[in-house]
Design a binder for these strands. Structure first.
Lengths: 196, 196
DNA sequence: AAAAAATGTTGAACCAGTTCAACATTTCAG
DNA sequence: CTGAAATGTTGAACTGGTTCAACATTTTTT
């Protein structure tokens, strides 16, 4: 089992940096496997997000609750994605988000301190986390552009096209809130498509 | 002049990593000072963004042009901020954005290749760029949250409160498009405030 | 298998923000 | 200093998306 775990995050890291067998061991040792049940919370507002999570199996979402109680989904994550409240995790300040499992999930968790140690221990680990952050920046910039330039229906179409694997694993109201529209409106968009 | 330049970007980098005199020299040498006139373009769609820019003096914006010709401002930048089309710069792919000077500006430019060399040359430089990217992630996550949860008027209020230095340096239609609303609507919000 | 909880659908009224058009004001190049 | 370009304002009609409420369907729990 440790073998399986190691190879997952190890394989992932090896996509970005070239690690020796020893480095791979040190790297994977910083992660702890963890099971969570559907609807379990990993991060809650006002508490500091002490970990970030890599998803081996399952599906999670990060969301904030608005003043009138509406959910706003900030991030969706399935296998091979990372999730946390990054504003909280990176600066170790109180979170504004919930991170919740949408399915029973199997995760690898790394603590802020252990991540700092990895970065301090090896140039290559520092590079790995730099690449991770840069990719997030590019991803989020694309999201900002989409939100600013597309209509609700276009945003949904782009989402389905880019993340087909996610469409069937999150309830409709979660996808709607991720795309910045109401459940009802997404329902209408979908049913509209069936007809023409 | 080199002295002034060096100390600006050097002082900036020193906020995040502890550099020796020699490292400072290597670091600042990778940057090239550059003047741009108001309305000059630094990045254009379909061309690869070969540089990122640190602003010594002046103001710039990054924007995409929508299908119906409307501007959508993705980023604003003044002194001590960085700007580029990061999706293009980081992956060296064709840009989707314009980056344009809004005032006559004085910049420090670094090329993608030189940045790669800095990162490869020193652990500390790698750390510096990692921190830069992480801060961007946190910043953009806050922007996504604001866009998803606030009304147009609230977004404007938050902007004025957080970036008062920017309010008077960008034309109203630029700020409006950054905040995801029309010029006309921002005009109404502002005039509405004068009365009550 | 039944009850409860969560999720999805539909209609109709509504509204935050847009659009268009005309005009006012400010900035800037020559 | 002047004219043109850029920027900002206002009104009135309009619309993409929301809200609310009631009901339908699916999933989960016991």
């Amino acid at each position: 089992m440790t073998t399986h775990t190691s190879s997952s995050i190890g394989r992932y890291a090896s996509k970005f940096v070239d690690l020796t067998a020893e480095e791979l061991t040190t790297f994977t040792a910083a992660f702890k496997e963890m099971k969570v049940k559907k609807r379990q919370f990993l991060v809650q507002p006002n508490f500091v997000a002490k970990h970030r999570y890599f998803i081996l199996k399952g599906a999670l979402r990060a969301y904030v609750v608005g003043e009138e109680g509406q959910d706003h989904t900030i991030q969706l994550a399935i296998e091979d994605w990372w999730i946390s409240d990054y504003n909280s995790y990176m600066f170790q300040q109180p979170a504004s988000m919930f991170v919740m499992a949408v399915e029973d999930s199997l995760l690898l968790q790394i603590s802020f301190e252990d991540e700092q140690q990895l970065k301090a221990a090896s140039y290559k680990f520092e590079t790995f986390f730099r690449i991770l952050a840069e990719r997030s920046v590019a991803f989020m910039q694309r999201r900002v552009i989409t939100n600013l330039t597309q209509t609700a229906e276009q945003r949904y179409d782009v989402f389905v096209e880019k993340y087909p694997a996610m469409v069937n694993r999150f309830p409709q109201y979660v996808i709607a809130s991720y795309l910045g529209m109401t459940t009802e409106f997404l329902s209408r968009i979908r049913n509209h498509k069936l007809k023409g």
